[in-house]
């Protein structure tokens, strides 16, 4: 046992030594930025749009976006957790996705397996209803669900997804019960809402807002403590008395053990990217809700969501 720890200790000294050697000239070779979704998706677009800016602010480093799709990003998360912590393997994490798959699925990593860097976007989840439904405000929707529990049909990506847990948190906060209809993804849900097959759906505000602008559907509110800058006309559910903060926080992470100096350099590069007017313009065109948080704040949000879900799971596990 003591020999084992001794070996481990010397190994970690050795690792620390090589890391110290590596970081002085970081980045000296190609950096892989992994994305847990296929090409063309929201996260992939974010990664590819940020990539040239990150390269610029990391002294012209060579950054390549690598798609590792599967299990709502969990395949990538797991690979990131097991990667060499040398700053050359990074991942674009999506929270709460990184946390939700830890409950009731086969994911084998923990939230402590990562070092967290800067974030790019925070997109609150929102509730939308079909244009032909009677619900004009969030209050009306909550009242209807309260009056007849389990009759108002709200769709969203499958059980255990960020969208499902967003709705679950809203139910808990407002003391109501919806009939959640799990779909294959946000696109299928939107189709069902627009066609009047279900009453409403839950997805991020950037995905629902265009349909609101078109009058195809109404976005009744966002699950945030304050209104979103890009969508000032959409109230929050806090205004209806259900204070829930729930959304997709997307930022860069690295395997646990990546030297702090390297993490600081990456966070700085993310911050400079976010300050770049050119990047801001691209983000605005894609209706991304930019929100820079540093590594400590990113980690804090992940831990907070983890604790919330742990309590919710202990109370009423959503996967049997």
């Amino acid at each position: 046992m003591t020999r084992m720890t001794g070996l481990l200790a010397s190994a970690s000294v050795l690792l620390a030594g090589t890391a110290a050697f590596a970081q002085s000239d970081y980045p000296s070779r190609q950096i892989e930025l992994m994305v847990g979704f296929s090409a063309g998706g929201a996260l992939d677009l974010l990664a590819r749009q940020a990539q040239p800016f990150l390269q610029k602010y990391l002294d012209g480093a060579d950054i390549v976006v690598v798609n590792v799709p599967g299990a709502g990003g969990a395949v990538m998360n797991q690979r990131l957790a097991n990667a060499t912590p040398d700053g050359y393997t990074l991942g674009l994490l999506s929270m709460p996705g990184v946390v939700t798959v830890l409950f009731g699925t086969d994911a084998e990593y923990t939230i402590d397996d990562f070092e967290y860097s800067g974030t790019f976007t925070f997109e609150p989840h929102s509730i939308m209803v079909g244009a032909n439904t009677p619900y004009q405000t969030g209050a009306e929707l909550l009242d209807a669900a309260r009056a007849a529990p389990g009759t108002v049909t709200i769709g969203g990506a499958g059980i255990g997804s960020a969208a499902h847990l967003a709705l679950k948190s809203l139910e808990l906060a407002a003391g109501v019960e919806f009939n959640f209809i799990p779909s294959q993804g946000a696109a299928e849900m939107v189709n069902q809402v627009l066609g009047g097959h279900i009453d409403g759906g839950v997805t991020t505000i950037s995905a629902s807002y265009t349909h609101h602008q078109e009058g195809q559907a109404r976005v009744l509110g966002v699950l945030a403590s304050q209104r979103v800058g890009l969508t000032p006309d959409i109230p929050t559910f806090a205004e209806y008395g259900a204070a829930v903060e729930w959304g997709a926080l997307r930022g860069i992470a690295a395997p646990a053990g990546t030297p702090q100096e390297i993490m600081d350099r990456i966070t700085e590069a993310v911050r400079l990217t976010m300050d770049d007017p050119e990047f801001q313009e691209i983000a605005a065109r894609n209706q991304m809700v930019l929100d820079f948080r540093d590594g400590a704040a990113f980690r804090a949000s992940v831990e907070e969501v983890y604790l919330t879900l742990e309590t919710m799971w202990a109370d009423d596990p959503w996967i049997d």
Partner: peptide
């Protein structure tokens, strides 16, 4: 893969790459 309607994994044998 994962049964999206219950969140249960079916025939995945603990392998995340079969979840979809």
């Amino acid at each position: 893969g994962m049964d999206t309607l219950t969140g249960r994994m079916r025939f995945t044998f603990g392998n995340l790459e079969l979840a979809d």
